[in-house]
Amino acid sequence: MAEIPSTPADGNFKVVWVPAIADTANPTVTEVTAEGALDISCYLTGDGWNPTKEQATIPDPRLCSRQEFGRPGRKTPGLSITVIDNTNSDNATDSNEAVETIVEGAQGYFVERIGVAYEDDFATDQKVSIYPATAGEKQVLAPEANSVTRATIPQFIFAEVKTDVALAAGA
């Protein structure tokens, strides 16, 4: 078998919170970079981006078979983010946008891009995944030795998650 190259994850992920996207099946570079969009990539902890997807099984038993069959059922996407939380610290004034923007009840779209250097701008035809979400209540995590102050913000998916959709140029 031939060697299959891989793409490192470190430094090749970008996650932006966007307040509005007109059509999640056809997002634009203009929308994901518009005023109000917040790049949370550097606020997320190393393990702080946690999208999940479960899929139910529809039982499909047959009278003639000794085997139980199944079909793909409903999908249940989920998302939780863990971010640094600079509340009440010397960094609170200028480095706490994630917890100040993604407050309980805030509704928006998390746009995830993988496989491209973080510092590269969004570009036409790059594939992104979009998670329409409403923020739950921030939960400050217990302090740990040799760690930073962090908070988890659960997200509630309110519309269909779109994966691997190409960015259009926009107006």
Results as ranks from 00 to 15, higher is better:
Gly73Cys: 03
Gly78Val: 13
Asp47Glu: 09
Gln107Lys: 13
Phe110Ser: 06
Ala145Tyr: 12
Gly46Asp: 15
Pro59His: 02
Pro61Gly: 12
Glu97Arg: 14
Lys75Cys: 10
Ile81Gly: 03
Tyr43Val: 04
Phe122Pro: 04
Gly70Cys: 03
Asn88Ile: 01
Ile58His: 08
Pro143His: 13
Ser95Gln: 10
Glu104Val: 03
Leu141Asn: 11
Asp60Ile: 08
Gly115Pro: 09
Asn88Asp: 13
Val116Gly: 00
Arg66Cys: 09
Asn86Asp: 10
Thr134Phe: 09
Ala117Pro: 13
Ile130Val: 09
Glu144Cys: 03
Ala92Ile: 04
Phe110Gln: 02
Cys64Phe: 15
Thr82Asp: 10
Glu119Trp: 05
Val83Met: 01
Glu100Asn: 15
Tyr118Leu: 06
Arg113Asn: 13
Asp121His: 07
Asp90Trp: 07
Glu144Asn: 08
Ala98Tyr: 09
Asp85Met: 02
Asp94His: 00
Tyr109Thr: 07
Ala106Thr: 09
Gly136Cys: 11
Thr124Lys: 09
Lys127Phe: 04
Trp49Arg: 01
Ile114Trp: 11
Leu44Ile: 03
Tyr131Gly: 06
Lys75Tyr: 08
Ile102Phe: 04
Thr124Glu: 13
Lys127Pro: 07
Ala106His: 06
Val140Thr: 15
Gln107Pro: 03
Ala142Pro: 11
Glu100Thr: 10
Asn146Lys: 08
Ser65Gly: 07
Thr101Cys: 13
Pro59Ile: 01
Ile84Val: 01
Glu144Gln: 15
Glu100His: 11
Val99Arg: 06
Lys138Arg: 13
Gln67Tyr: 08
Glu68Leu: 14
Ala92Phe: 01
Pro132Val: 03
Asn146Phe: 12
Trp49Cys: 00
Tyr131His: 07
Tyr118Ser: 11
Lys127Ile: 04
Val128Asn: 01
Asp125Asn: 09
Asp47Gln: 08
Thr87Gln: 07
Gly46Thr: 11
Ala133Lys: 07
Thr76Ala: 08
Ile81Pro: 10
Gln55Gly: 09
Pro132Cys: 07
Ile114Ala: 11
Ala133Cys: 14
Val103Glu: 14
Ala145Asp: 13
Glu100Phe: 08
Lys138Tyr: 00
Gln67Trp: 02
Ala123Glu: 12
Gln107Cys: 06
Gly73Ile: 00
Tyr109Glu: 06
Ile102Val: 05
Asp85Val: 01
Lys138Phe: 00
Pro143Lys: 14
Val116Ala: 03
Ala92Lys: 02
Thr82Arg: 11
Gly73Ala: 02
Arg74Asn: 08
Gln126Thr: 04
Thr45Tyr: 00
Asn86Lys: 05
Leu141Glu: 12
Asp90Pro: 06
Ile81Ala: 01
Pro143Val: 15
Asn86Ile: 05
Tyr43Pro: 07
Val116His: 05
Val111His: 04
Phe122Cys: 05
Asp120Ile: 05
Asp125Pro: 03
Glu112Ser: 14
Asn146Met: 05
Asn96Cys: 06
Lys138Val: 02
Lys138Ala: 11
Ala92Asn: 09
Thr57Asp: 15
Val116Glu: 06
Gly136Gln: 10
Phe69Cys: 07
Val140His: 13
Thr134His: 10
Thr57Leu: 13
Gly78Ser: 11
Phe110Arg: 02
Glu112Ala: 15
Gly46Ala: 15
Asn91His: 08
Asn96Tyr: 09
Asp94Pro: 00
Arg113Ala: 14
Arg66Asp: 14
Gln139Met: 05
Cys42Phe: 07
Phe69Val: 10
Ala98Phe: 07
Ala98Ser: 06
Pro143Gly: 13
Gln107Phe: 00
Glu144Thr: 10
